[in-house]
Design a protein around this nucleic acid. Sequence first.
DNA 1: AGCCCGACTGGGAGCGCTCCCAGGTGTGGC
DNA 2: GCCACACCTGGGAGCGCTCCCAGTCGGGCT
Lengths: 343, 343
Amino acid sequence: MGPRAGDEERPTLEDVAAFAGVSRSTASRALNDDAYVSAAAREKVLAAARDLGYSPNQAARSLVTRRTGAVAVVLSEPESRLLDDPYRAAVMRAGYRELADVGRQMVLIFSDIREDLSRTVRFLEGGHVDGALVFAPHRADPLPKALRLLRIPVVFGGQAAGIRRGVHVVDFDNEGGARLAVEHLVAAGRRRIGTIAGPQDQGAPIDRLAGWRKTLLDAGLDPADLAEEADFTLSGGANAMSALLARHPDLDAVFVASDMMAVGALRTLDSAGRRIPEDVAVVSFDDNATLAPAMDPPLTSVHQDPREQVHAMVETLMQLLDDQNLKPRQQILPVSLAVRASS
Amino acid sequence: MGPRAGDEERPTLEDVAAFAGVSRSTASRALNDDAYVSAAAREKVLAAARDLGYSPNQAARSLVTRRTGAVAVVLSEPESRLLDDPYRAAVMRAGYRELADVGRQMVLIFSDIREDLSRTVRFLEGGHVDGALVFAPHRADPLPKALRLLRIPVVFGGQAAGIRRGVHVVDFDNEGGARLAVEHLVAAGRRRIGTIAGPQDQGAPIDRLAGWRKTLLDAGLDPADLAEEADFTLSGGANAMSALLARHPDLDAVFVASDMMAVGALRTLDSAGRRIPEDVAVVSFDDNATLAPAMDPPLTSVHQDPREQVHAMVETLMQLLDDQNLKPRQQILPVSLAVRASS
DNA sequence: AGCCCGACTGGGAGCGCTCCCAGGTGTGGC
DNA sequence: GCCACACCTGGGAGCGCTCCCAGTCGGGCT
């Protein structure tokens, strides 16, 4: 009829009901497998839906149920990160899968740029999604605060540095992981143990640095001047390694706060003629499945499973959807050390 | 009132209208900046919306407009790919940005697994999105066919190998890119030019292999036995390189169908004691911004800009949304050669 | 025989929005 | 002076669905 052919043919629930010879209500009940539908009716409705190629109009449904079936996954990373951060890629992947498993659709949101904040908030407000999983916001990030005002169910992945209370958080034991790494190095007889830390405006890198420092002190070693901050990128790791090496040519081990930076560090060490692990032992963090074991030498790394984190986050969010008043809880997931040839 | 406090406070358009002292219709017009609203009324409505913290209910809106404002980006890649394929990451990023620029929300869909197909189709049918951008489907992929039946506007990114007609496609000149690469090697005096090809069930790798072969023949060189197929992964590239080297120790150049595989090839060549580019020149495809220039030595690579591709796809989709009967068109984007130290 | 209760069904209301249409007001042209 | 035609406004209908409520039917109890 109109300019667009084919569009108006989409059958509605009414059509299905008529075709099956029942009422709209019964058809709805059958399709949503409510109780109180006779087997015969259910059968007829399902057949009708199949024959007509019916699929429910989500807009209409969510208008009345006030549920969309979608969950936002918000990554508030600097632009550059996403391209080369395999951990975030794994998070996305896991988010998609875990949400699909509970019948929810993932809606990805990148919120790294200034202007994106208002867009992000507007989107979240618009009722497009039932809740949100928010990853690794920065300390300066205004997003967490904005989200709390919205009263939209939110679960954070990784500490929102600074905001710890009143929110749901699923994090790894970053400090404990760093401790594992450094204790491993100490046990191997290393004494000049440096670290390449991540950006100190995020929760995880802060905790990893703290873990390194405390463990050194506990072992009676002096951390002074042995830490270098980088930005989680390969080149950042390489540069930080150069700086450390320049300051401490006698360095015999380094704890790197991410696999990606460790790759850069490895490169620098190689150029500087250091043998790994004979001259300098390297332990990193993330234990990315495609990165850590593939390096030369394979990296000893603190293992954390993004899928496990996301799974816990989704679980919490689902509970939150059922009961908005669920009291805020923080889950700290354990990590382990995958020992390989680099240490 | 109900079990969930706070929820029912969300203001509706009616509330805004009442607050502003106008009718619902006028409020709607003001917010959607339709014509025929007095400046005074518009002003009052906007102020009311701001004061009440109003944001429109998308479900209600799209129920009547039959538009959701969302566009699906479908990646039908094997699971492993996504984690280490920086090109796909760039595509996602660009998709997000380009769609945001035209006021659309990106909804990511991974459709690599069997069971996902029906889920994907159901989702696309459910009216969640206005259209879809579908990337690099495999020859065996049933998705393209399913999508055509839906009559949902779709633009393909990269040839849906096999299906070329009747669909909108934005692709790069893969064959031309391979030609550029090989001609560059020939001009540099190379005579034993191998290739590491990508999976031959996808359009792009097929065309790249064809370009390599034809250019060799045109130069009077024999391509026989000099091609090795791999799966676009780092380790796949490394293994393929080993195989090539074993067959042809006198190889003096290799054209690799992706940056990632080239990284693997580089590693193998290095282990085998080959100097690059003195002994073996390497040219790859993708020219990934974070990968190609960062290698040692930096990679000569065929440059293609994912953002440009996505931009063209979004543009086409927008036209398609306006006019469903737009006649199918194929756009082939040009590529160039970024010459660096590896060749 | 009467009654209750559980199983099942259909109609109506309404979610929050956009669009159509009828109506009102002002301005210009004949 | 009146019509034509812009500009602007409000009410009503209705998008497709879910949920509530009334109602029917048939057994098992007292």
